[in-house]
């Protein structure tokens, strides 16, 4: 296909049915905006959960009788365990200071001695933050000589895991509904603009144009509409987030990926929608 022909026909498709083209762009922009809002919420929710999970620490208490050398060796052993991200040693003195920071009183003054044991605080790698894996890791550490007890927020992990699965399920379902709905809506709207060119399609078929030859200008027009709609949706979403941030300045958004996603999704929706819409005329 000659490029000048493709561009001329694409331009003609866009301008001959201006109202339908505009309607397609508006429909796509609204669909994309919905997808965008959804993606921003999902992405930020995901980041929030990761943030909470990263804060979950495991604490391994050790015997007071261990020598500095033994403590060092134990720390090395724990550090090398699969799933461990970072290990920090908390001495009895540090534990006492933390107690004071937490409760506002010195444990030494209350009890006349410091009963708080030394411990290792460890952070678990993100991939290991599953209840079962954390449990196994805790058991392994517990089995090391010199370790008296391992504590961690097992219930919180289970809770997060449970709600995460539910939320992920709902998100996927909603995403699917919005996505399929958007494609059908867009295909229907694009069909309006293709309808106005049905005579031309009929004649093209009669003079021996191949289906792909007929289709290509419509797909390019759809891609262009999708690009414009993606731009419009991106602009509105940015404006929306700007307004939200004005009222809630501490809120964080991760939207760069979403903006790119909207443009790419817009182009894809335009192409898929046009392809679906023109199918019936090419039978």
């Amino acid at each position: 296909m000659k490029l000048w022909y493709l561009l001329r026909e694409t331009f003609s498709n866009l301008t001959k049915a201006r109202f339908s083209s505009l309607l397609s762009i508006v429909t796509m922009a609204i669909s994309l905006l919905m997808i965008g809002v959804f993606a921003v919420v999902a992405l930020n929710g995901w980041q929030l959960i990761q943030h909470i999970k990263n804060k979950i620490e495991m604490e391994a208490f050790i015997e007071d009788t261990l020598t500095p050398n033994q403590i060092y060796e134990l720390k090395q052993k724990i550090s090398k365990m699969e799933g461990v991200m970072a290990v920090a040693f908390i001495s009895k003195e540090e534990a006492r200071e933390q107690f004071q920071r937490q409760f506002g009183e010195d444990v030494f003054t209350i009890l006349g001695e410091n009963p708080l044991p030394c411990s290792f605080r460890l952070r678990v790698q993100p991939l290991f933050q599953k209840p079962r894996r954390v449990k196994i890791l805790a058991q392994k550490i517990q089995a090391l000589p010199g370790v008296t007890e391992v504590v961690y927020r097992y219930e919180l992990l289970i809770l997060i895991e449970k709600y995460l699965k539910i939320a992920l399920g709902i998100a996927l379902l909603l995403g699917l509904i919005v996505g399929v709905g958007a494609i059908l809506l867009i295909a229907n709207t694009i069909q309006l603009s293709i309808y106005s060119k049905r005579d031309a399609i009929e004649i093209m078929k009669l003079v021996g144009a191949t289906p792909s030859f007929i289709r290509r200008p419509f797909l390019l027009a759809g891609a262009f509409q999708g690009l414009v709609a993606g731009g419009v949706a991106t602009g509105i979403l940015n404006l929306l987030l700007f307004v939200i941030r004005y009222f809630v300045p501490e809120i964080q958004f991760f939207i760069q990926q979403v903006l790119l996603l909207l443009i790419v999704t817009g182009i894809m929706l335009g192409i898929v929608g046009s392809r679906l819409a023109i199918r019936r005329y090419l039978k």
């Binding site: 003609s12 001959k16 005579d199 031309a200 004649i203 078929k205 009669l206 003079v207 021996g208 289906p211």
Partner: peptide, 22 residues
């Protein structure tokens, strides 16, 4: 997929001309 190539070798004329108005 060969039908378009057949149509290029058959000329068709209709009562209503079927010209593109634009």
């Amino acid at each position: 997929k060969d039908i378009p190539f057949l149509r290029r070798k058959i000329g068709v004329v209709f009562q209503d001309f079927k010209l593109l108005r634009d």
